[in-house]
């Protein structure tokens, strides 16, 4: 399962006064099992990009292929594509519509034409994946739940389609720390235990520092940095210039090096800093 984007461009309202080039020659290779964080400012084209991944938007030029097959090819089954690449929109709780949590989660699998036993199995699995107790919540109205719970129901609705690639557009937006941590832990488990390829749009460098295996930075419709967190956060100047910055731990690391401490130059998580500072402390004989 791999996706290839080659020379993908997208222009909104082509030919009108509102014409706007949202994606400009995007070339990417997304490999199975990656956890990609997609970052950039509002309007940099990342939301447009994610809607291309499951075929909701069609590139104005260029091609996107899934396992070597053009997703806009004549033979491609659009519904099968949307099953393989699950897309969780921003504020997904606003798409809930059924009377019960169970019915809402089964909407996707039903559209896939699965039989009722399989649907039931998937609903239970999806609810487990988002840490919602089936017995307790299945028959409740989604509209009676808290904001964070509603969002998890909405994500379960996508998980029940059992996608190979899960794309999440700012899944933690507007949530409080507890809600945010729950979603991030859940995504982490899907990646580690289930092997799902994750593409997550995020604004928090600190959150993605500990989660992502790869960071793609977009600016003005283009990919301007692409690499492991270590590689990307080493480019402090570039990240500052785009206005995204780097994680606090990475900034601390550089500040300490500037003060003459003997630290590696590429630490970027609090854990790494913790270890490194502790080591220096012990070397100095502190206790």
């Amino acid at each position: 399962m791999s996706m290839t984007l080659s020379h993908v461009c997208h222009t909104y309202s082509q030919g009108s006064a509102f014409e706007h080039l949202a994606l400009n020659d995007i070339n990417l290779e997304i490999r199975e099992g990656e956890f990609i964080a997609l970052v950039g400012h509002t309007g940099c084209g990342k939301s447009t990009l994610v809607q291309h991944l499951n075929g909701l938007l069609k590139p104005t030029s260029g091609t996107i292929s899934l396992d070597g097959e053009d997703i806009h090819g004549e033979k491609t089954d659009r519904r099968a594509l949307r099953q393989k690449v699950g897309l969780v929109f921003q504020y997904p709780e606003y798409q809930l519509f059924e009377e019960t949590v169970e019915k809402d989660i089964s909407f996707g699998p039903k559209n896939l034409g699965l039989d009722s036993r399989e649907i039931d199995r998937r609903v239970r699995q999806a609810m487990e994946d988002v840490h919602l107790d089936y017995e307790k919540y299945a028959n409740r109205s989604p509209f009676d739940l808290s904001g964070g719970q509603m969002r998890r129901v909405a994500i379960a609705g996508i998980l029940a389609m059992e996608p190979k690639v899960l794309v999440l557009d700012e899944p933690t937006a507007g949530l409080d720390p507890r809600g945010r941590d729950r979603i991030l832990t859940m995504v982490k488990h899907l990646h580690e235990d289930r092997g799902t390829t994750i593409i997550m749009v995020s604004h928090s460098m600190d959150d993605i520092a500990t989660l992502a295996t790869r960071i793609i930075v977009m600016s003005e419709g283009k990919v301007c940095l692409d690499g492991t967190p270590r590689e990307v956060f080493a480019q402090r100047e570039k990240m500052d210039e785009i206005g995204l910055g780097i994680p606090e731990a990475a900034r601390l690391c550089q500040a300490l090096r500037a003060k003459g401490l003997d630290l590696p130059d590429d630490l970027f998580t609090p854990e790494e800093l913790h270890g490194a500072i502790l080591r220096l402390w012990k070397e100095k004989g502190g206790c």
């Binding site: 606090e248 731990a249 900034r251 601390l252 500040a255 300490l256 003060k259 003459g260 401490l261 609090p270 800093l273 913790h274 500072i277 502790l278 220096l280 402390w281 100095k284 502190g286 206790c287």
Partner: peptide, 30 residues
Amino acid sequence: LAQDLREDGLPLRDDILTVEEMAEEVARLL
């Protein structure tokens, strides 16, 4: 982070908020 390091025995101030304060404190010790 300062709290975690304090638990490991580093005598850091307990009211650090920013990267700059942290850098100064750690540098003072080390």
